[in-house]
Design a protein around this nucleic acid. Structure first.
Lengths: 348, 348
DNA sequence: GTTAGCACTCAACGTCAACGAGTGCTAACA
DNA sequence: TGTTAGCACTCGTTGACGTTGAGTGCTAAC
């Protein structure tokens, strides 16, 4: 595997990524400045095929890169650190109108990535150990009901209506909130659930509220929360001839619809800064001819979120990687400051 | 347009809905008990074509129903009140594990509808006049930031971080919250924005907070809120031969991705209990061969939400309508009680 | 008014030959 | 020894062409 073979292989991959059509020796010798004749290229290509880097759909067609070739290509890309920083400001400007709900940010990010790459983008909300309670607040709504607002250290807020007695006035509610916050701050949801019965015993007279809260917490802690899964640009995939087969497109799309499974797949890469899984490496039969590129971002308290791009194996890897790179940093910035109103001074 | 023509037309529509293939005279005379020979049917079909109820893709193919025919079909369906109540319990059981966040319910409903009908389902969150503020609460988060929780009469909660001075303790924050709630209860977001400057003047010493709140409110009130749009079963459409053309599928899917436009289309039907728009009636070129069936549900305070099904013009109208009917009632039930913890006594 | 029969139409399908992009191999060349 | 020109060969693609069959419209008989 000498340097020249390498150069030729790269040219083939580049061309195939561009066109999606098997590339022949003549194309390479003409379009790329190799200074070699098609015959020489042909010999090299034959070698490359023997080495497993190229496939031939049929005898009289050009060659297409194998998964192994993409792997080599991507690895050399990553090693060389050749990733141009794809105009961070182009991405930043997409976030100019400030958005704050974490889920909105994530949805938006997925849309931006997919429109920049023309592939399908997936962004997962951070998932880490257990979020820890920071504040519990009961907001009166009237008619004997209140809204529970639970703020965790991830800034994720979960809310739900509960019943409170008609006899509680706002101030009482507030003092109960304060007491609860003091008791529960720093607990995980599970721990809070375990603590609550005892608190209920101690704070007589507020059974209704606390029961409601208990129901809320136990449900939330039970549910694996799953986190939010944002998907953008699913229809982009149909633009590639790889998916002109309707059945294939269908199975792909329905995979994109089952968010749980999708999240699992995307998250499957662990917490590496970058992952590129090519074709069979994805481990998903539906994605046999897809590649998945993922990156991570992190929040203030070190929780890791994942963002990824799904495209055909002939993906514009370098472009995608650099976009994910910038976007990952962007998200990290957004979530490690607070969601609004300037930088966060002080620390948790 | 005598009774016999009507019967034949219905048979043709039924068959076409079933198979998606142009139906010939012989099919009708054999599969449906008309007691007529194919030749007779042929004559009738010829008449029906002249009347504009049937189209002929080409001379030696069977006939397919025109939009006009579907319209007639659906109208007679609705008039006759023939809608079987498609097992409400089947739908109810999908909601057994209780879910409460309104958005979760809506997402879930879209999934249920799409899986029951095998078409694409869209559910829109209720939209009414302007939601009115009910409570404003500032929840301390630490580090000089607070979470704004705004509860409106729709139960929709919007929250965002704002900066507060480091000098505010929880109690001050609470009293500010109470004061704000008193001042702003019953206002729309716009009104609240207009009122705030004056309040800021009056309540000196809390500028930071109030400025933050102002920023929040003005942003929220500016944004048309849009509401939540849940879509389920987009991939279902690809199963129909109507969408075996990839380009068509693509434009459909990308329409499904632009939620704003989609919401507009679905909502376009006004607040009728039912709407059936067939083909061109949708007014959307991308949906020239789709039909949209919508129904509404309502919440406690009379806000109207919309749920709809998008499918090929040869849709199983009666089934779809009855499913939407049941689902609409189900959602109304869920949202007219409160979101959790038993019924709401009292009223707003 | 209904039906049987028949000629006619036309999309769909399969076959076949021509075409051409691309290969592999061989021989000549630097 | 590596490179290149030339040539025979392969095989998918394309388009022409005939066949098939579903379905129609028309006419004549019932």
């Amino acid at each position: 595997m000498d340097e020249r073979k390498m150069r030729i292989l790269r040219a083939i991959i580049d061309d195939y990524i561009l066109t999606g059509v098997p590339v022949g020796s003549r194309t390479i010798s003409k379009k790329y400045e190799t200074g070699l004749s098609s015959a020489t290229i042909r010999n090299e290509m034959s070698d490359l095929e023997e080495l497993g880097y190229l496939d031939q759909p049929h005898v009289s067609a050009g060659r297409i890169p194998s998964a192994k070739a993409y792997r080599l290509y991507v690895d050399s890309l990553l090693q060389a650190g050749k990733l141009r920083n794809d105009s961070p400001q182009a991405i930043q400007q997409h976030f100019s109108g400030r958005i704050r709900q974490m889920e909105d940010v994530i949805d938006h990010a997925a849309r931006v990535i997919s429109s920049l790459t023309n592939y399908t983008a997936v962004v997962l909300s951070p998932k880490g150990q257990q979020p820890r309670l920071q504040t519990v607040q009961l907001v009166p709504v009237g008619n004997g009901t209140a809204l529970v607002v639970v703020v965790t250290d991830m800034g994720i807020v979960r809310d739900s209506m509960i019943r409170i007695g008609n006899d509680m006035d706002d101030d009482t509610l507030y003092s109960v909130s304060r007491a609860l916050t003091n008791e529960l701050r720093g607990c995980t949801l599970q721990e809070a659930c375990e603590k609550l019965p005892e608190i209920i015993r101690r704070m007589q007279g507020n059974e209704t509220v606390l029961q409601g809260l208990y129901g809320f917490l136990s449900e939330r802690s039970g549910a694996p929360a799953g986190g939010h899964v944002a998907v953008g640009g699913t229809s982009n995939m149909l633009a590639y001839p790889e998916y002109s087969d309707v059945d294939k497109a269908r199975s792909f799309l329905s995979l994109m619809e089952t968010r749980d499974k999708l999240a699992e797949i995307i998250r499957g890469s662990g917490e590496m800064a970058f992952t590129v899984r090519i074709g069979p490496e994805t481990g998903v039969p539906e994605m046999a001819d897809c590649s998945i590129v993922t990156a991570t971002y992190s929040t203030r308290n070190g929780q890791q979120g994942t963002l990824g791009v799904i495209g055909p194996t002939r993906m514009q890897y370098s472009r995608v990687i650099s976009i994910l790179n910038v976007m990952g940093r962007q998200l990290t910035d957004m979530f490690s400051g607070d969601a609004d109103g300037g930088d966060q001074h002080g620390q948790d």
